[in-house]
Design a protein around this nucleic acid. Structure first.
Length: 463
RNA sequence: UCCCCUGUAGCUCAGCUGGCAGAGCAAGUGGCUGUUAACCACUGGGUCCCUGGUUCGAACCCGGGCGGGGGAGCCA
C-alpha cells in the first residue's frame, strides 16, 4: 500500500518531503492568516495538523468550506516541523480534496465531548471518536497478545463449536437455535417435534468451550480457545453481555497452583503489552477516563498476586461484617461487595480466591479431601471483581460420576466427557478470562457495552 | 428479574410553590498575526418522550405506556 498512515508519517523526520494525508476531519480552526485542519485516520490516537497559509487557504477556499468535522479528505503538502507547541510535525498543505462531506446539520458527531449514552445510540459512528478509536486499538492489540502468549508457550488454538446440542455445559441460560417455523407451531397448538428440527434435537449457542476443549487437552496437552460465547441471562449490568468473547486455556497434568501461575503470567503479559504498545491510548484513558490508570496497571506488574482460600476470606469478612449489606458466613456465594472489599481493602490488588464450597461451584471441579471444598480459583481485581474463573478438573471417574448423580444431572449426556476419565485420565486445569472484562480493566472504561463494537444485551441487538 | 434515578434546542443540562421556553457547547455569519477544548461579537434553532386526567392555566401535579442510566442478582 502506497498511502502512508498518520502513524507512519509521525515516524518520519520533518524534512520537507511531499506527503499525502487521507482521513477524516476532526476539527478545523480558522484565522485570518491560516486555516488549521486536523485529520485523523484511526492509525493512532493523535491527529495530524494540516496548515493552509493565506495563499493555500484562498486556493482551497471552496473545499475548505466543505471540510467540516467528519468529512473525509485528501490533503497534499510537505512534512515540516511545527513552529508552534502541541505537535512536533505538521503538514504544510498545498491542496485539499473533500472526498465525502459530513454536513454539520445532520452529522451527529460534533467537535465536542459526547456522553457514552449518546454514543451508544450511534454505535456505527462512535468508532470515529477518540475514546472508541482507542478502545478498538487496545482491543485489537490484546486479541493478538493473547495468541502471542499461548503460541509462545506451545499451546494449540482449538476451535470449539458455537452450536451445541448438549444442554450440559452448565454455565447459564442458553439461546436456542432452531430452523423450525415457530409461528406455525404456535398457531397449530401442537407440541414441538424436535426430530424435525435442523439437528434432530434441541440445540443451543454455547455458553463455554471448556468441556469441548478438554477433549483436545487430553490429546495435545496445552490448548486454548478464544471465541464468542453466549448467555441468555437477563443481566442488565455494566459487567455482562449476552454475546461476549472468552479465552479458555486448558492444561494437561496441571494442578491448581500451575493454573494460577499461568493465569497470573497471562494477565501480566497482557497488561505489560498494553503499557508498552498502547501507550498513547492508555495515556488518553488515564487523562480522560480513569485517572491513575497507568500507575495502577504498572503496580500490577510489580508484585506477585495475593492468594487466599475461601475459608480464610470468609473469616476476614466475618470480622468486618458490619461493613456489608449481606452478612458473610461460610457457605455463602460471595457478593460483589465482599469480593471488592477483599481485593481493594485487604489485598490492594489482584487476588486469587481458592477452594470454594463445592455447593456453589460447578460439578466438574476437583473435590478436596475435606469433602466440602473444590479446587476452584477466582481472580478478583479492583474496580469490578471477578475477571477469571477456573479450577482443577475432577479427573477421577468414580468421583465425577458420583457428583453428577448427586446433582441429578443426566449421566448419559456426559458420557463423552466421562470417557476422558475412563481412558488415560490425567490431572488437568484451566480457566476462563472474559475478554471484554479484560478490556475494561486495561482501559479503565466503566461499561462493558463500550468495549465491544456492537454490544448484545437484553433488548439490545441494534446495528 | 428486583430496586433507584432520568427523559426540555444537534449535544450536556437549568427551569422555584402550576403563570409567555433558558444557558453552555455545537452550527451559521463577521472579526482576529500560528491556532490546537482557539478566541471575540452577532444570528438562527423547540412535538418540553407519548397518552389520558386534574386545573382558568401543565415542561412542572396524577394514572398508563415507551426510552435511557445506575445498583443488585446470575457470571466471564
Amino acid at each position: 500500500m502506497k498511502l502512508m498512515t498518520i502513524k507512519e508519517i509521525f515516524a518520519l523526520e520533518p524534512d520537507g518531503r511531499a506527503v499525502t494525508v487521507k482521513g477524516w476531519v476532526r476539527t478545523k480552526r480558522e484565522t485570518k492568516a491560516a486555516v488549521f485542519l486536523e485529520v485523523n485516520d484511526g492509525s493512532r490516537m493523535g491527529n495530524i495538523q494540516c496548515v493552509f497559509d493565506e495563499a493555500a487557504a484562498a486556493a482551497a477556499n471552496a473545499e475548505l468550506g466543505r471540510a467540516g468535522t467528519g468529512a473525509s479528505v485528501a490533503v497534499e503538502g510537505v512534512l515540516v516541523a511545527s513552529p508552534a507547541a502541541g505537535q512536533k510535525l505538521e503538514v504544510r498543505a498545498s491542496s485539499l480534496r473533500v472526498i465525502g462531506e459530513a454536513p454539520a446539520e445532520t452529522y451527529p458527531l460534533q467537535k465536542k465531548a459526547h456522553s457514552f449514552e449518546f454514543l451508544r445510540e450511534i454505535a456505527h459512528l462512535r468508532p470515529r471518536t477518540n475514546t472508541f478509536g482507542a478502545v478498538a486499538r487496545v482491543r485489537n492489540r490484546m486479541a493478538f497478545a493473547i495468541h502471542e502468549f499461548y503460541q509462545a508457550r506451545g499451546f494449540n488454538y482449538v476451535h470449539t463449536p458455537l452450536i451445541t446440542a448438549s444442554d450440559c455445559e452448565g454455565a447459564g441460560a442458553m439461546f436456542q437455535v432452531t430452523t423450525l417455523d415457530l409461528e406455525r407451531i404456535a398457531k397449530s397448538g401442537q407440541a414441538v417435534d424436535y426430530s424435525k428440527d435442523f439437528f434432530g434435537k434441541p440445540s443451543f449457542l454455547t455458553v463455554s468451550g471448556q468441556l469441548n476443549v478438554e477433549t483436545y487437552c487430553a490429546a495435545l496437552g496445552r490448548v486454548y480457545t478464544f471465541g464468542p460465547t453466549f448467555r441468555a441471562e437477563n443481566s442488565n449490568t455494566t459487567r455482562h453481555l449476552s454475546e461476549f468473547w472468552m479465552i479458555e486455556p486448558e492444561v494437561a497434568f496441571a494442578e491448581l497452583p500451575d493454573n494460577m501461575e499461568l493465569a497470573e503470567e497471562f494477565l501480566k503479559h497482557l497488561v505489560r503489552t498494553a503499557l508498552k504498545d498502547c501507550a498513547e491510548d492508555l495515556a488518553f484513558f488515564d487523562q480522560r477516563i480513569q485517572p491513575g490508570l497507568v500507575k495502577s496497571l504498572e503496580a500490577v506488574l510489580d508484585k506477585p498476586f495475593a492468594h487466599m482460600t475461601y475459608t480464610e476470606a470468609v473469616a476476614i469478612l466475618e470480622k468486618n461484617a458490619d461493613k456489608f449489606e449481606v452478612k458473610p458466613y461460610w457457605g455463602l456465594d460471595l457478593m460483589s461487595e465482599h469480593e471488592k472489599f477483599l481485593c481493594e481493602q485487604i489485598a490492594g490488588g489482584p487476588l486469587f480466591l481458592t477452594d470454594y464450597p463445592k455447593e456453589i461451584k460447578s460439578f466438574y471441579m476437583k473435590q478436596n479431601a475435606d469433602g466440602k471444598t473444590v479446587r476452584a480459583m477466582d481472580l478478583l481485581v479492583p474496580r469490578f471483581g471477578e475477571i477469571i474463573g477456573g479450577s482443577e478438573r475432577e479427573e477421577r471417574l468414580e468421583v465425577l460420576e458420583a457428583r453428577i448423580r448427586e446433582l441429578g444431572l443426566d449421566e448419559k449426556a456426559y458420557s463423552w466427557y466421562l470417557d476422558l476419565r475412563r481412558f488415560g485420565t490425567t490431572p488437568h486445569s484451566g480457566f476462563g478470562l472474559g475478554f471484554e472484562r479484560l478490556i475494561l480493566y486495561v482501559t479503565g472504561m466503566a461499561n462493558i457495552r463500550d468495549v465491544i463494537p456492537f454490544p448484545r444485551a437484553p433488548k439490545l441487538a441494534d446495528f
